[in-house]
Design a protein around this nucleic acid. Structure first.
Length: 273
DNA sequence: AAATGAACCTGTTTGC
DNA sequence: TGCAAACAGGTTCATT
């Protein structure tokens, strides 16, 4: 479900839903077998804590509880919703309650999501976060960095872009959309792309992600904002999900291929290797 | 060493 | 219509 704009949309929705700080947390764990086993000690360690902030790093939500941080990833189908709107549903895996505030429910049919609770100073070197590259808006993320990082790589640029060690937050949809806007073929060997074109790519990634966040993310099948409303960036897709249809720029036919098992769409005329 | 493909799961869509 | 296969926004692991 979520790439960076969707996670950021969820974060903003949660912050709007939660008048921080929220005191006296109580976590109920219904299922521990998510993508990775949820630590059984989690409810005990969190009991009574105060939620002071909800941040995002890459596609992770970082829930700050004093000197502890709950790290949560939504996987493909994870979502948070306000509880107290009926009984527990199929695929609800945990609930977060506070003394006076909303009850939050984590729901995840495919169970690709995962959670952990760590000391604040250990967050950055947590095995999930430690290998991550820069955020797309980091100063460190520029054409020079990309060129150095991709030097010698003959892998398709789309694959390298979706590698979180290179840059975080760019998944299958936004990789395709960014490459279209930068005029670069997803098949282009990563190490052969010149500085100028990489600069265009950096700009395109930021522009697309900014626009998607502003639109409240993309709603495909089941993604919803924390408040339950839909994002609408899906109406701005230029290539994703449009294989066989005409390119909006040149009216040629958009092509489809599978790259590392992921559906890939691009315009052979507008996007060059 | 880098890069591809399978695996983790379930629900929904597509195609015969 | 019915059923099975294919496919889905993410990430990790094993195998070339």
């Amino acid at each position: 479900m979520p790439e960076l704009p969707e996670v950021e949309t969820v974060r903003r929705g949660l912050v709007a839903l939660c008048p921080l700080p929220l005191r006296d947390a109580q976590l109920t764990l219904w299922r521990r077998d998510l993508r990775f086993p949820v630590p059984a000690s989690l409810p005990d360690r969190l009991a009574g804590a105060t939620l002071t902030a909800i941040e995002r790093r890459a596609k992770f939500l970082l829930w700050h509880f004093g000197d502890q941080v709950l790290i949560s990833h939504l996987g493909m189908t994870g979502s948070w919703r306000r509880g107290a709107d009926g009984p527990r549903r199929r695929h609800d895996h945990l609930a977060l309650r506070f003394a006076d505030g909303p009850e939050l429910i984590y729901h995840d049919p495919r169970r690709f999501g995962y959670l952990d609770l760590v000391a604040r100073e250990a967050v950055a070197r947590h095995p999930w976060l430690q290998p991550l590259g820069p955020e797309p808006w980091d100063q460190a993320f520029d054409a020079r960095y990309l060129q150095a990082r991709l030097r010698g790589s003959r892998a398709p640029i789309k694959n390298r872009l979706m590698d979180a060690r290179v840059v975080v937050g760019v998944g299958n949809i936004y990789a395709a959309e960014s490459l279209f806007r930068a005029g670069i073929s997803p098949l282009a060997p990563a190490g052969r792309i010149g500085r100028q074109r990489l600069a265009r790519l950096v700009h395109a990634i930021r522009t697309v992600l900014d626009a998607a966040i502003a639109a409240g993310g993309s709603t495909i099948s089941d993604f919803r904002q924390a408040g339950g409303s839909s994002g609408y960036f899906q109406h701005d897709f230029r290539v994703y999900g449009r294989a066989g249809r005409p390119c909006q720029q040149c009216h040629g036919t958009l092509r489809h291929a599978t790259l590392s098992g992921r559906a890939t769409v691009w315009c052979p005329r507008c996007q060059r290797t």
